[in-house]
Design a protein around this nucleic acid. Structure first.
Length: 272
DNA sequence: CGCCAGGGACGAA
DNA sequence: TTCGTCCATGGC
């Protein structure tokens, strides 16, 4: 069990800002999620955030929840104008989760041209069909499948689970992970530019999905993944069609954080 | 019914 | 290089 000060960690902001797909609200002040083949509950009580976990796993969750990072510093640094101040204020409890590489790879392939509730639905059905069962408080949950297990899924299987035209992308990505043509450790050793180039070679992985994988699982925080919402907010506020380039120039090593505050704010709050 | 969703492949110009 | 068009699917 990890006990944290509530400052700069809000459950709703972190789990519902669109970065992850396997967390569900359990009650007014608790969420249950599946990550690293474990089910875990995070609660908010008084002024504390409580991560219910085994003592032996604390290191895992410390990394997953990015607990060592000073988010107050980041928020100050990206608050470069009125809009950013507003976006940061709206999403001030966001932490960028460090998710499993294979899970992020497949999940963000699924995310393309899709909406968040359906992404979650598909990721859950894939997990239920190919992931390991986890029993938690007398309920069965399913871990995100290993590459070896997901290898059993054919394109048709994945279509039947709702993946749509992305099914063929998933099959190929799984193959490349299995045969080590795509390897997490190798990506980590590369420069960001080289890691991008490698991921962009994958069938069905373009700029946006590539940046999400790098940001949300490999800790490349100097990227500014640009989807329709980010393009919209950058166009509206900076009159630019080049959201990614402009964002990365403006926010540098904090691009990924800035991007997440903006996405969450623009998508949920601003009408029109 | 048409439009949209955390896009990308593909062929045409 | 850039630009249309198509791709599955469900919610509204």
């Amino acid at each position: 069990m990890l006990l944290l000060d509530k400052n700069s960690f809000n459950l709703k902001d972190t789990f519902e800002c669109g970065q992850c797909f396997r967390w569900e609200k359990e009650s007014e002040n608790s969420y249950i999620g599946i990550a690293h083949s474990k089910v875990i509950r995070v609660k908010e009580e008084k002024n504390k955030i409580i991560i219910e976990c085994d003592e032996k796993d604390e290191k895992i969750w410390e990394e997953y929840f990015d607990l060592k990072r000073n988010y107050e510093e980041i928020k100050k640094a990206v608050s470069i104008n009125k809009m950013m101040e507003e976006a940061v204020e709206y999403g001030k409890g966001i932490r960028i989760l460090k998710q499993d590489f294979f899970e992020a790879l497949i999940s963000f392939i699924i995310s393309q041209q899709n909406n968040i509730s359906r992404i979650k639905k598909i990721v859950n059905s894939v997990s239920k069909a190919y992931g390991e069962e986890i029993l938690f408080e007398n309920k069965t949950y399913y871990a995100f499948p290993t590459p070896e297990s997901l290898k059993k899924a054919t394109e048709k299987d994945l279509m039947d689970l709702g993946a749509g035209y992305r099914a063929k992308y998933i099959v190929k990505a799984v193959d490349e992970v299995i045969n080590k043509s795509l390897d997490e450790d190798e990506l980590l050793k590369m420069s960001v530019q080289d890691a991008r180039k490698r991921l962009l070679k994958l069938f069905g992985v373009g700029d946006k999905v590539c940046d999400c994988i790098l940001l949300f699982s490999l800790g490349k925080y100097d990227l500014f993944p640009s989807d329709v919402w980010i393009k919209r907010v950058m166009k509206e506020n900076f009159d630019t069609e080049f959201a990614k380039e402009t964002g990365e120039k403006m926010f540098g090593k904090y691009s990924g954080f800035a991007q997440q505050y903006l996405f969450y704010w623009r998508k949920n709050l601003k009408a029109k």
